[in-house]
């Protein structure tokens, strides 16, 4: 198992304690393509942040590639985020005073790569995603779909084992959403990257092989979706 969660609890405490995750048990194998669905406020993002070591949890155990992720030092956590995990956000989260290529190469900067090497690799990823001519543009000069592809390139440049995406199509129209999902599917098929997508769009979930439903802070049913028939709208369309 690449990812193993045992009885994960998470409580936010802003004056009034809010018990969001109430005992999550979850296992994800290397190379899986999984989506997490659930109502707004059900704790999807919270769970994904814990998986990405962006946030910590209160109770339970999280094993990542055989290593217990608990009470890590900031340095260790940063190391795992940098080496193992790529993160894609709904709002893209590109640094707006850096060009597309500079955004993509930033994770390599923190790995200590030289400028030339970084630039070379980043350009290769941008080319792969059809963004070569946009390399020197700033994020505010790019469309939503282009921004998200830049963000995915940034997530992938360190060659991570896991790609976590929190509503990656949330800010995109249906056509661009399909493009982005095709891109992710392709990555999963050819590069064998383990991908976990949080979404509340059934069309998006339908692109994945396994749909995990989360409800009231625990895992509800898990639908196997190898046939991609989960969406009533048919395959390869995403209704907005």
């Amino acid at each position: 198992m690449l990812i193993e969660l045992h009885n994960i609890h998470k409580t936010y405490d802003n004056g009034q304690p809010l018990h969001v995750l109430k005992g999550i048990d979850l296992g994800i194998e290397q190379g899986e393509f999984v989506s997490i669905m659930g109502a707004s406020g059900s704790g999807k993002s919270t769970l994904l942040n814990i998986l990405g070591i962006l946030d910590n949890y209160d109770e339970g155990e999280y094993w990542l590639d055989g290593k217990l992720i608990k009470n890590l030092s900031e340095k260790e956590a940063a190391h795992y985020r940098n080496q193992m995990i790529g993160f894609v956000f709904q709002s893209f989260n590109l640094i707006n005073f850096k060009t597309a290529v500079e955004n993509v190469e930033l994770p390599l900067y923190y790995q200590g790569f030289g400028r030339k090497k970084r630039n070379e690799l980043a350009m290769r990823y941008l080319e792969h995603f059809g963004l070569a001519e946009w390399a020197t543009h700033y994020p505010n000069e790019l469309s939503g779909g282009q921004k998200q592809r830049v963000a995915i390139a940034r997530a992938l440049i360190t060659n991570p084992r896991i790609l976590l995406a929190d509503e990656p199509t949330g800010a995109l129209d249906s056509k661009t959403s399909v493009e982005v999902m095709n891109l992710l599917t392709d990555l999963n098929r050819t590069e064998k990257v383990t991908i976990i997508v949080v979404t509340h769009e059934s069309g998006v979930a339908n692109c994945t092989d396994k749909i995990i439903h989360i409800k009231d802070g625990i895992i509800g049913e898990t639908t196997m979706n190898e046939q991609h028939k989960a969406s009533v709208f048919g395959t390869s369309t995403i209704m907005k």
């Binding site: 640094i95 923190y110 360190t158």
Partner: peptide
Amino acid sequence: IRRAIGATPRD
């Protein structure tokens, strides 16, 4: 963002 993609607090 920098932290999420691997910067340590020292960085």
